[in-house]
Design a protein around this nucleic acid. Structure first.
Lengths: 333, 333
DNA sequence: AGTGCCACCTAGAACGAGCTAGGTCACACT
DNA sequence: AGTGTGACCTAGCTCGTTCTAGGTGGCACT
């Protein structure tokens, strides 16, 4: 026996209210089959006893299409917004949501196993780093939707931003301002990394400019390191495209500390249009991803697939918008 | 009927292996009662069918002390590290962990209700903003441990850093450098906020210095706003204590942009010793919290309480350490 | 040969809820 | 008075698993 006050069961409520167990079930679910007076009475008794329905028992019996399982990386602030959006969509679709975090001690494979063991009807994997083969294996058991990463795997849908197109827009913006020495601080292994690099290459080729890529990463520290490498070499570019906002912030702060003015001497851009991009001393021009819509799309696809709808499109690529702020300006003459 | 491959049950495995259902259970749980040969055979058949035990059915029948429920705020990067630590401790204690996020659409009350509905044996609430009365109400049902916030509520334990003592250390460090006009950019409503303010007041009084508090917050933007207010008034302090690292970063960047040198003209300190504190252009002196130990303590207390141990101490206050970097120096003469 | 014993296995009842198929009762209609 | 006809309620099976209480059978010992 447990010491909690949580061991109140439906049978206890039924006994206390002087009715049968199924009637309590009817009342709790709010389905027709009970008079208003008994309904009120049962509800009152349940509240007094502190009765909370056991979702596990419910799910076991109901055998419905189940809950939506979500795996995300706790340390990624960008994932937080997506989790938020998925919650919202599930809420309004009346679906349970089972959350599991990917951390150092709880890797993605374990995380997804736990979702399967919970009999989730579909899985939303945010920024999954799993190999396509393993994803396909999981997708054979249950519908899988990957968010924020383009994954080519059998039966797996993915939702992401138009990373390639976004970088084309950024380059075009800089070219339009008159820049020609435009450097990209890339992060090839991050979600969207390869696509952004491709977009950069494509747009640079279209403008007949020579490519300049420096390997960075997705953190502020990575941006700072990339800045150090840029400063170490002879000639600086007139514009640097940060892989994302933290990276751009690291670039900007480091270059400023080296005595350069942003944007007068050098322009900087970010990606994500997060809170740090808008701070007064940064004013980063940045690519805005429609995270709300990404989350919604992923959740809706997961729910649809769970309800039996088959895969229609493998990919859902959402448009982005460029938020222009004061970190970009024409190059010095 | 579901379309997934997940509808393989123990009975299916039993039939396919030509044994009884309970025997499969014995094998899957690894308890004595089956010969090695049948054990291997059953395991093989289970793997072939892709059988995954249903944790909900297990939990239903087992009626053990249950899982540890964790509620956290997705947007707080600081919470991520704690979630990570709780996972680790639960893992090595062999406990299931049920995670639920607190977001805009899924408030803390809902989050905790879902943990209760999942029959968690104990709840770890990270940075709970719930009123003491409600926490006590929940704690009457199931043990509750609050992390990173000092909460006085019946039967609720909390684990947090020594916020008060930390601020005493910070002030003493600055006083030791020769500062006398020391300002605190506070965040009274954040976790630890009141304690840090108290520590600041106490240390300032002990050094016979006059108190100077400016209301800020826990974000970079809040720090930037506070800096603007400091600059607007006549005389600047020679040192500013940021409520946490983002706040300190906002202060530092804004003051630098106004032409001040850090630390030559003004010293800045942070709190949390997070990744942003260590970036080369910040080099923030900051208070290091032992997040790993906080998480471990919280998880262990939750598990102990769940197993029937009663509340021993209401509070678990962990020591902190001051990481001294280049953002603090003697004041200008 | 009978008995005990152990190692291995199985039948069937839980767990807490949902659902199907009925049962009871008051009331109105023929 | 007999008979529908609802509205309201209940008995009992079911979900996938664990657990209790019992079978088997083989081997060693009396």
């Amino acid at each position: 026996m447990r010491a909690n006050g949580l061991d109140v069961t439906m049978a206890d409520v039924a006994k206390a209210a002087g009715v049968s167990r199924p009637l309590v079930s009817i009342v709790m679910r709010g389905v027709p089959g009970a008079s208003d007076s008994t309904r009120q009475h049962v509800m009152k008794v349940a509240a007094e006893l502190g009765y909370v329905p056991d979702v596990r028992a419910q799910a076991l019996r109901r055998q419905g299409p189940g809950a939506v399982g979500v795996a995300f990386e706790a340390v990624q602030p960008f994932h937080a917004a997506l989790v938020d959006g998925v919650y919202e969509t599930c809420e309004s679709a009346g679906r349970e949501l089972v959350l599991t975090a990917v951390t150092a001690s709880h890797d993605e494979s374990k995380a997804i196993d736990s979702l399967l063991a919970n009999r989730c009807g579909a899985i939303v994997a945010i920024g999954s780093g799993l190999p396509p083969r393993r994803l396909a294996q999981i997708a054979a058991l249950v519908p899988v939707v990957v968010v924020a990463r383009a994954v080519r795997a059998e039966a797996v849908e993915y939702v992401c931003s138009d990373d390639e197109g976004s970088l084309v827009k950024v380059v075009e913006h800089l070219v339009g301002l008159g820049h020609s020495r435009i450097c990209f601080a890339a992060s090839p292994r991050s979600g969207g990394g390869p696509q952004r690099l491709r977009g950069y290459r494509k747009a640079m080729a279209a403008a007949a400019l020579s490519v300049d890529v420096v390997e960075a990463g997705s953190t502020e520290q990575a941006g700072a390191d990339a800045a150090a490498r840029l400063l170490a070499r002879g000639q600086l570019p007139t514009a640097v495209i940060g892989f994302n906002d933290p990276c751009a912030a690291g670039l900007q702060a480091s270059l400023r500390q080296a005595g350069l003015r942003v944007p007068e001497d050098i322009s900087i851009t970010g990606f994500d249009d997060s809170a740090i991009a808008a701070t007064p001393y940064r004013q980063l021009t940045s690519v805005r991803q429609d995270t709300a819509r990404m989350a919604e799309t992923a959740a809706l696809r997961a729910i649809a697939r769970m309800e039996g709808q088959s895969e229609r499109r493998r990919s859902h690529v959402l448009p982005t918008a460029l938020t222009i702020r004061a970190s970009t300006a024409p190059p010095p003459r």
